[in-house]
Design a protein around this nucleic acid. Structure first.
Length: 456
RNA sequence: GUGGUUGUAGCUCAGCUGGUUAGAGCGCCGGAUUGUGGUUCCGGAGGUCGCCGGUUCGAAACCGGUCUUCCACCCCA
């Protein structure tokens, strides 16, 4: 029985135009990564399960795609676990490998594994697919592409400044104006938790705070209370909920609030430095916005955190994010190496460009010129011309069969081929080819050199 | 992982409280038009109604399961 073909949940096929457009975004990002001194590396699609587990929190562990062991995979499983159907406890016995969940943790593994061959600070970029067993939604897939740039082995805040400028440059180059780069610092969040006496509940506290712009002040407070944060603590936190003004104004207000917290003040200092550095070298189209409620899920961030929001007119989640992680490599045995990095969400950037109609016309599938096939003799004559076109960098093809003119023209039309060349008996005799502009419907008689000069 | 939603021709969708042979628009193929596409006209092909099971004399429609789509949580790019 013929089964209806489909791709697995949360995955997609890409047609030629979509691939061209994705490549356009990737090329733009790559170019800027390299301009900023990042070099490409690649890591395997799957890692040892133990490399990934526990790095993204409990929720993250659940969303990792595990690969079932080969062979008699039930043989090694503990019988009690099997009888109790204790799936979670059995995972480590059923699966040794898993698809990578992001690019940062495999990168940390790479750094530790190759530490003797690496010269620090090490700057790398990586553009590869990652997989998450999440429920798909708009702009959320189970297989998607991340474009990461990270630097490890440098504590300098100039790295953070560079990343902000890199974001600005890439989105300026893609003509996405009005992007907001939100910045915060985990040290400030730690300071806040410390001051309200919830230092041991940093993660639930930040997760709740992160939802402020989405669910509002009341429900955030409610969630915090449910997680055991007292009402006197919430009172101390009140200024955070009503914080407004410029970057500097917000920073000043936070300074007052955090004056008794050493770690909090350290965070303030860092954000001040970044703001100061950007004054002399302003952003082109992006806006830098201090957002104290920005938390970001990943547990390994320790310093500055970033998130890029699409222009207001496009309703989509963040299109990029990143931050500093002081201790990621220590899990793999390399201490005192600080890392900081950012990520571009290719699939979502694609949706933004599509919605705002920002893909250049030059980014399209198909050739520039189609030669009409009039028959064996004429096709043979065209062969030399085809080569000359291609040597000049003009994408060219000859219709493979001497089909009816209508069919050949229709092929050009449907593939959005801008020019058609008619080289039949008359043209071959005179050496002047008929060049038809498919957009305008006009045509003229020109020599091969004239056509090449015009199209290249 | 929780709650809801969707699936009928290649695409977008109609199809009444269950009743003969399941429709439309667009697209596709052929012709009008043997060296000219997009417009027009004429003709044609194409569906075991997501899949499996159940109820019924009878199911695209009702019920259960499953897969898929989209949405809200959770979380996140």
């Amino acid at each position: 029985m013929a089964q209806k073909p489909s791709t697995p949940k949360g995955t997609r096929d890409f047609n030629p135009l979509q691939v061209q457009r994705r490549n356009y975004i990737i090329q733009t990002i790559k170019r800027h990564f390299e301009l900023y001194g990042f070099m490409p590396i690649e890591t395997p699609s799957f890692e040892n399960l133990s490399t990934l587990m526990g790095k993204y929190g409990e929720e993250g562990d659940r969303l990792i795609f595990k690969i079932l062991n080969n062979g008699d995979y039930l043989d090694k499983v503990d019988e009690d676990l099997l009888n109790n159907k204790d799936s979670n406890a059995m995972i480590s016995q059923l699966s040794d490998r898993a698809l990578k969940y992001d690019l940062t943790v495999p990168f940390a593994r790479y750094v530790v594994q190759h530490q003797n061959d690496i010269t620090f600070p090490f700057k790398r970029y990586q553009i590869q697919n990652v997989w998450r067993a999440d429920r798909p939604q708009k702009g959320r897939y189970r297989e998607f592409t991340q474009c990461d740039a990270d630097v490890v082995g440098s504590n300098s805040l100039l790295q953070e400044v560079d990343f902000i400028k890199l974001y600005d440059d890439v989105f300026t180059s893609l003509q996405v104006n009005g992007v907001t780069i939100k910045i915060n610092n985990r040290k400030i969040l730690a300071g806040l938790a410390e001051i309200i006496g919830a230092a041991d509940q940093l993660i639930p506290f930040t997760v709740a705070l992160d939802k402020l712009d989405k669910i509002g002040e009341e429900r955030v407070k409610q969630e915090m209370q449910e997680r055991g944060i007292s009402s006197t603590a919430l009172e101390k936190l009140q200024p955070v909920f009503t914080l407004t003004g410029s970057y500097e104004e917000k920073l000043e207000a936070m300074k007052g609030l955090l004056s008794s917290s050493e770690i909090g003040m350290k965070g303030i200092e860092e954000l001040e430095f970044i703001n100061q550095s950007l004054k002399s070298n302003q952003l082109k189209t992006a806006t830098l916005d201090l957002d104290i409620t920005l938390a970001r899920g990943l547990n390994y961030y320790t310093g500055c955190i970033f998130e890029v929001a699409a222009p207001d007119s496009v309703k989509i989640g963040s299109i990029g994010g990143g931050g500093r992680y002081d201790d990621l490599t220590s899990i793999f045995g390399l201490k005192d190496v600080s890392g900081v990095g950012i990520s571009f969400g290719l699939d979502r950037i694609y949706l933004v460009l599509e919605e705002l109609n920002l893909f250049p016309d030059s980014v399209r599938a198909g050739v520039d010129v189609l030669f009409i096939n009039f028959g064996e003799m004429e096709a043979a004559h065209c062969s030399g011309w085809l080569s000359r076109f291609r040597e000049s960098g003009i994408k060219t093809e000859l219709y493979p069969d001497a089909a009816k003119m209508k069919k050949q023209m229709s092929y050009a039309d449907k593939n959005n081929i801008p020019y058609v060349i008619l080289a039949g008996e008359n043209e071959i005799a005179t050496g002047k080819l008929t060049l038809k502009n498919m957009m305008e419907g006009s045509q003229e008689s020109l020599t091969i050199d004239e056509i090449i000069a015009r199209l290249s």
